[in-house]
Nucleic acid binder design. Structure first.
Lengths: 350, 350
DNA sequence: CTCATCTTCGCAATCGATTGCACAGAAAGG
DNA sequence: CCTTTCTGTGCAATCGATTGCGAAGATGAG
């Protein structure tokens, strides 16, 4: 049979004091307003009975559930689990638990899930979904719910955001390719309805300008999803266009892996004939040949940072203590999928 | 400013009825005990005001939170996210949310997290952790909390469990190797304090007997963790032992991948000289050469099944309607890492 | 037309913890 | 020794929804 829980009332009966006294004695901050002797007697009784506070009841009264909501597109996407561990690493020791929901990047799901989280009384939300617009989360934030976004910013809002320095990552990567002698560099862009896809394309364009490289719209192929199949399709498209290119900078690792596979199908060797780069540095990359040159993102610290900012928000810290924008550094990791452009390619006039 | 929530009381005031009437009108099952006209008036008011029930308050009264706890070793392990999606796919449509915790396979963490979940009043727990013993979860179940375990059973308990037919998987794989002419087959075993590691070693031994193959303890190397590095180390160990083997059946994919890499380091080709097999069929395997022959586990359906059984438990279904044991089928997927044993090897007398 | 039966709804208790306020007794000050 | 100020504890309301019970009012049977 289901054991009935020990409540404050039980302890009160046991120790002969009022439940409010018990409540105070067990609260670390209120405890000092209670005679030490009484407090420790209560503490002892609580321990003896195996008292465990009922967070539901406390939550009803205090309106704090010590729970946060985390919204991500899809947990099976390998970049998210490390983020979640990062979040957990700062929140869990403080007694917070998190409810994780997958939006599958569908707008109506996203809207519904925001409500689901609010109904459950979460104290705050970390929003790592990637749709480029979503009124529901903005509304929630406007109504006072602590919210931070990860990997993207919500326009026209006061929502703090944490992003990776993707601009710098793309730029460094492009510089790396340029330094290897590449001039005709294609971009396999991600879906343009996802913030990551759009941001990285913009970054690519900017980086080209910064490095005084030509930006040729014909050398941009846009994927419909972030997967290998689309990476392959984009490369086919680029190849079919007849435009010459010696390198392809892809908007993420999976696109790059698909691209390399497809090149191989066409008898084109990476990196000897065409260099390919990825983005994210997902796990297991070391095991796939050629080992992919990519941009490493600090997923774990991104999660930690998001959690830290959310905490400040939930604590009601002063606005000036809350960083509205956090840009995390990225680094390029050079492996085997990029190589110096071939002499005959390099010599041939553009 | 934080908007104050609409409560039943607000609707009651608005419609001129008692809050209990409102409560009933909004409850799909109680609704029929209310005049249709009143009910729809209340419904309209609720919609107009944008009423959202406070699950915390309901939870306090009913002692049901519509929340389940899910315990896994580590979310960054690629086999767990599909399980979680499977769980979600059955629970979420019914209004349940899940709190996911990572145990890191540490006993004290596991114990503590069970309490964390209970304090939050979860209605049930799906326990996919892998330690071979853990009194805390058994105690929770004994006290009446609905619990099901995934991937392992808890001895001496009435806890329903869902497992994959690993015995069959190992046996089929061994048969596959035997059919390819292999006779000297090594086993790279997983950690023996984890149920998966232990189960698969036992399965290997049984399968050898079933197939009348020799089981040579000297051809078993035991990994301390389920990762590539340990797979490599085990292969080194086997190679160093001087015992001859033409195939290595590994307890999971990562061990297998490490093994193949290490063989390559030693100038040994897989599959030409030594065949290697994995277990789990994790994502991205298709991208790694040689493509690994492995055992596919239905992670998603395992999650679904666990959730379904947990639901029955939480609904208080009759004991005979609750399957205590569910064994999910597995299938071997033959790719490139296994090949027929070489003639000279085959001919050479054992 | 009366009494029994049903429907429909209101009343109030309840879940367990928190917290503003009141009050009693002790310590302090004059 | 009496007032004033603390200090420690009790009292009771509160958070919002649920639900057993009872009381009107409606309906029906006789």
């Amino acid at each position: 049979m289901r054991q009935k829980r020990i409540t404050l009332k039980d302890i009160a009966r046991e120790t002969g004091v009022h439940v409010s006294t018990v409540s105070r004695a067990l609260d670390p901050v209120e405890r000092k307003s209670i005679t030490e002797e009484v407090a420790s007697r209560i503490q002892a009784a609580a321990d003896a009975l195996g008292y465990r506070p009922n967070r539901i009841a406390a939550g009803l009264r205090t309106n704090r559930t010590m729970t946060v909501g985390v919204m991500i597109p899809d947990i099976t996407n390998v970049i998210f689990p490390p983020i979640l561990r990062g979040i957990e690493s700062v929140l869990e020791p403080l007694g917070y638990a998190s409810i994780i929901v997958n939006t599958d990047s569908e707008r109506d799901r996203e809207t519904r899930l925001v409500d689901v989280l609010r109904d459950r009384g979460v104290d705050g939300i970390i929003h790592a979904a990637v749709l480029r617009s979503d009124p529901s989360i903005a509304r929630a934030a406007a109504e006072g719910l602590p919210v931070v976004t990860l990997n993207r910013k919500v326009e026209n809002s006061q929502i703090p955001y944490i992003i990776n320095d993707e601009d710098a990552g793309i730029c460094e990567m492009l510089r790396h390719l340029r330094d290897l002698g590449h001039r005709d560099i294609a971009h396999v862009a991600g879906p343009q309805d996802l913030s990551t896809g759009q941001l990285r394309l913009a970054a690519f364009r900017n980086a080209a300008a910064t490095l005084s490289l030509d930006f040729d719209p014909a050398l941009v192929a846009t994927a419909r999803r972030f997967d290998e199949k689309e990476g392959a399709r984009c490369i086919r498209e680029l190849l079919a266009s007849g435009r010459r290119f010696t390198a392809a900078l892809c908007a993420n690792d999976r696109l790059a892996l698909g691209a390399i596979d497809e090149l191989r199908e066409h008898g084109i060797d990476c990196p000897r004939e065409i260099s390919v780069t990825g983005f994210n540095d997902m796990p297991f990359l070391e095991l796939i040949r050629p080992r992919l040159t990519t941009v490493r993102i600090l997923q774990h610290s991104a999660g930690q940072t998001a959690a830290t900012v959310l905490l400040k928000l939930m604590n009601g810290d002063k606005a000036e203590d809350i960083p509205m924008e956090t840009i995390l550094p990225v680094e390029i990791v050079v492996r085997e999928s990029t190589a110096r452009v071939r002499q005959d390619d390099e010599d041939r006039p553009a």
